[in-house]
Every structure is written in structure tokens, then in C-alpha cells.
Design a protein around this nucleic acid. Structure first.
Length: 427
RNA sequence: GCCGCCGUUGCAUAGCCCGGUAGUGCGACUGACUGUUAAUCAGUAGGUCAAAGGUUCGAGUCCUUUCGGCGGCGCCA
């Protein structure tokens, strides 16, 4: 008897054949002559029936929600069954009898967050995790096609990438270390050997943000490469975003359908994206928000207004130097403007930040001092400018922010299996 | 960091404004019934109302504080 996956049966590939499935009880309805067992595995759910005359009847009666089991029977097409197919069970074997499952149809957000380890079994989380995996795969595929080498940066670091206020500190034997908030500086080291590099790794931020788009631990897709400028950077980001959206639209149709997410939005993503400068953004927003001036940070509300206008991913670039990090390259003829670019999407705002990096050692030291940073803390970073410095660019994109936009998720915590927020780190 | 909302049985909730024996649905258990779609019907069990203090003859309800949770802004991806 062939051991099969449930989605194969639902695709009609085993109709009228004897099959064996392994999985868990998703629903159960018990009658006097007939028991309906809805069984799930990693690929889907299918209704199974067993009649009272069957020797396994008493075993089936014992089944509880989320018990694991092996079930053998005949796959049949049946319009009465949800999904159009069902298995007429001939033998049922309980593998692990489940206790009373705590998650039922009445559940609050708070409760399913406490039950995350069990909620991950839900259809919703199952589907989102599959889209997440496909997204990672599509991103890697794009980087690889463009001849980028995947590298592995450290999570323990000794100095901050930016200010330092958002770093998690930790005891490292007798020293104080931090968890990385971006792998950018380490990618910058590696371009001198491998040229085009990328990584997909966690970033940690100790921001006490209380929103639907912040995690303290999130997955960061970062790329960095030499001999490139702002145009190259935006072109690459457009290409990555387009490739990921189109690949997901093709590969995850079933997941989007069951989740009720809009797949047309992904198909509509095409390069080139709209691009506006920071100054143009300020001019556009000024009538609605008179408080904005050159030098103002664009707030989330401002970004949302812009995003609603475009209705799709777009870039804002050329920000004031004073609101950007020390490593941002500035224009030689007007140093008050930094070569920095954010990609924004509707509802979420920023999903990526990138820019050209300052390659001149003396300018870099000036910028560090202006921001109250000690150049001696960044000796190895300055060495990169001492030994064969090169113009280079890079960016970082938040994987979970990309996912909540693609899937229309209400909260970023559903884009990652084990979310860490300011208040939650269990399980 | 600032602001707002919430906490009643395993789960979801009513009751709080206007103080007077804590009610319902789901789940569990018992039984009936059913090609059912997280079915339906009958019955049973299940609650120091987040904690502490205060007001009161009397507090789930009013007041204060604390704890826990959620969200908005700031900050960011």
C-alpha cells in the first residue's frame, strides 16, 4: 500500500487506489454508524470515513483532536467531502493519542500567542511558513543568478553599526558584547575578497517599538558589492523584488488562495519602480503636513501617504546627511545630501534601506566624529579604506516586512515561526 | 520613551455606566441523533471575577497602586 501525501490525493493522483497516510486528526465528527476523521499532514487536509463494521472502529472512536495516526484505505472522489476527495478507511492505527487540545474555535489573539508552539500546526501558519520558505529560496536564486556569493557574518559583535542605543548587550565571558543589528559592516569586509556578496541572517534591535511591523529579532536579507553606484543599487533591488514577487505568484497560488491573499498585487510588480528624492517627497507632503521641512525625518504617517499615492513598491532617495548614518556617502558638490535609498510599500512603509558607502577614510573619520563615535572603535572598518578602497553600495531588506506586505498579514509576528517582540519570547 | 485600550471557568464572552446570591456559548463528560462539513438536541461537572489596598452594611461593578497583555506614536527593516 502506497504511503502518500494528502495533496497528491486532493490532486486526484490516487483516485480509487489503496493509500496509506500519516498525520494528525484535524477535526472529528462521530455518529452511530459512521465517524468522519479529517486528517492533516504537512501538505493538506482530507476527510476520512470509517464504518461501524470495520475492525478499527473502536480505535477510531478513541481518536482525539491532534492525535497522530496512520490510516489506510481507498482514496475516492466524493462531492460530499470538503475538497472533493476522501479516504474510506480500512485500518486506523493511533500513534500518539492527544490530550484535550487547548486551541478551539474560540480563541483570542493573546491566547494563540501563548500557544504558539501548538498554533504553528494551524492551516494559516502552515501556509505562511511555506510562503516564507519559497521567498527565501527565490531571493537566494536571484542573488545566485546575479553572481553574488552567500556569506556568513557573525551575530556576536564588538561595536555598534550605528548609534548604539538599539543594541542588545550581553555578557561574553568577562566582556561586554552585542548582538548584531545589521551585517552590513561585515559584508563590506568580504567584498574585498568575493566582490558581490549577500547574506540572509538575523538582526537584533532593542527598539521598544509597539507596532504591527516590529520584531526585536528579524531576518535581514543584505547585499553589498563594489564598483557600483546608486543606479546599480536601485536596479538590483528592483530586480530582486520583482523576481521574488513573480516567483511567489507562480509557486504559491494555492497558499495565497487558501489564505485569501491578493496574488495580483505581486504580478503587478514590474521594474522600473517609481523613484522620488527626499526633497520631492517633502514637497509632495508639505500641503498635508506643514511641519515638514528639509531635515525632517519622514514619519510613518508621511510614508503611508506617499505609499497610498503609488499603490506599489517605490523608492525615496537622496536624504539629508544629518539624519543618516556615518557610513553614508555624500555628494562631493553638495555634502548635505547623502546617497541613501529606502524602498517602501503600501501599508507597511520601509521594507529596505540601502545606499552608497563612504569610501574615503578621512571623510569617514569626520563623519564618525560629527556623530560622537570614536574612530578607534572602528579600526578594522577604516582599514578597508586604507587598503585598496573602492566605491561600493549595499542594502538590507526585512524579510518579515516583505512577507506581511505580500500576504496582507495583520501583524509581523505571523511572518516568523517564533516571534520575539518587546514582550514576547516564549516558546 | 509618550499615549490609549484590555484582564470574569480550559477557551470566547455577558454583567461594570447605575454596588445587592456570577449568566451564556464553545470545549470536556453522559446520552440521543446525523453523509457530516469546527453538525444538532438533552443533561452533568467546571469560577478565591489578574493581585494588593481603600470606600461601603455589602465590591466582578466605584477609587488607588502594582502586575500581565494588546495597539498608536517616536525609532527602525
Amino acid at each position: 500500500m502506497a504511503l502518500v501525501k494528502i495533496n497528491e490525493i486532493l490532486a486526484g493522483r490516487h483516485t480509487d487506489q489503496k493509500v496509506s497516510v500519516r498525520g494528525w486528526v484535524y477535526r472529528k465528527r462521530e455518529g452511530k454508524e459512521l465517524i468522519f476523521m479529517v486528517v492533516r499532514d504537512s501538505t493538506g487536509v482530507i476527510q476520512c470515513t470509517i464504518k461501524k463494521a470495520n475492525p478499527s472502529w473502536s480505535e477510531a472512536q478513541k481518536l482525539t483532536i491532534e492525535s497522530s495516526l496512520m490510516l489506510e484505505g481507498t482514496a475516492k472522489e466524493d462531492t460530499r467531502a470538503p475538497g472533493g476527495f476522501e479516504i474510506g478507511a480500512e485500518a486506523v492505527t493511533i500513534i500518539g493519542l492527544a490530550e484535550n487540545f487547548p486551541i478551539s474555535k474560540d480563541k483570542s489573539e493573546e491566547f494563540i500567542r501563548d500557544m504558539r508552539h501548538l498554533w504553528l500546526r494551524s492551516r494559516k501558519m502552515n501556509l505562511v511558513m511555506k510562503v516564507r520558505a519559497e521567498t527565501l529560496e527565490a531571493a537566494r536564486e536571484y542573488f545566485k543568478r546575479q553572481k553574488y556569493t552567500e556569506v556568513s557574518p557573525p551575530m556576536f559583535i564588538s561595536a555598534a553599526v550605528e548609534g548604539g542605543s538599539t543594541l542588545f548587550g550581553l555578557k561574553y565571558f568577562d566582556q561586554e558584547l552585542y548582538l548584531t543589528q545589521s551585517s552590513q559592516l561585515y559584508l563590506e569586509i568580504l567584498i574585498y575578497s568575493l566582490e558581490n556578496v549577500y547574506c540572509i541572517a538575523p538582526s537584533f534591535r532593542a527598539e521598544k517599538s509597539r507596532t504591527i511591523r516590529h520584531l526585536t529579532e528579524y531576518w535581514h536579507m543584505e547585499g553589498e558589492w563594489p564598483f557600483a553606484d546608486m543606479n546599480d543599487l536601485m536596479k538590483f533591488e528592483e530586480g530582486l523584488m520583482t523576481h521574488v514577487c513573480h516567483t511567489i505568484a507562480e509557486k504559491c497560488q494555492a497558499e495565497f488562495k487558501e489564505l485569501g491573499a491578493d496574488i495580483e498585487k505581486l504580478k503587478a510588480v514590474t521594474a522600473p519602480f517609481p523613484k522620488i528624492t527626499y526633497k520631492e517627497a517633502i514637497d509632495r507632503l508639505k500641503p498635508k503636513n506643514p511641519a515638514l521641512n528639509w531635515g525632517s525625518d519622514l514619519g510613518y504617517e508621511d510614508e503611508k501617504v506617499l505609499a497610498e499615492d503609488f499603490g506599489k513598491p517605490f523608492f525615496v532617495y537622496d536624504y539629508p546627511t544629518e539624519i543618516k548614518a556615518f557610513y553614508c556617502k555624500t555628494y562631493a558638490d553638495h555634502p548635505e545630501v547623502a546617497m541613501s535609498v529606502d524602498m517602501m510599500v503600501p501599508r507597511i512603509g520601509e521594507i529596505s534601506t540601502g545606499g552608497a558607502r563612504e569610501e574615503n577614510k578621512d571623510h569617514l573619520i569626520e563623519r564618525m566624529k560629527a556623530q560622537g563615535l570614536k574612530p578607534e572603535d572602528y579600526e578594522w572598518y577604516l582599514d578597508l579604506r586604507r587598503f585598496g578602497t573602492v566605491p561600493h553600495v549595499g542594502f538590507g531588506m526585512g524579510l518579515e516586512r516583505l512577507l506581511i506586505w505580500m500576504l496582507d498579514l495583520e501583524n509581523i509576528i505571523d511572518a516568523i515561526p517564533f516571534p520575539r517582540t518587546t514582550r514576547r519570547f516564549y516558546p
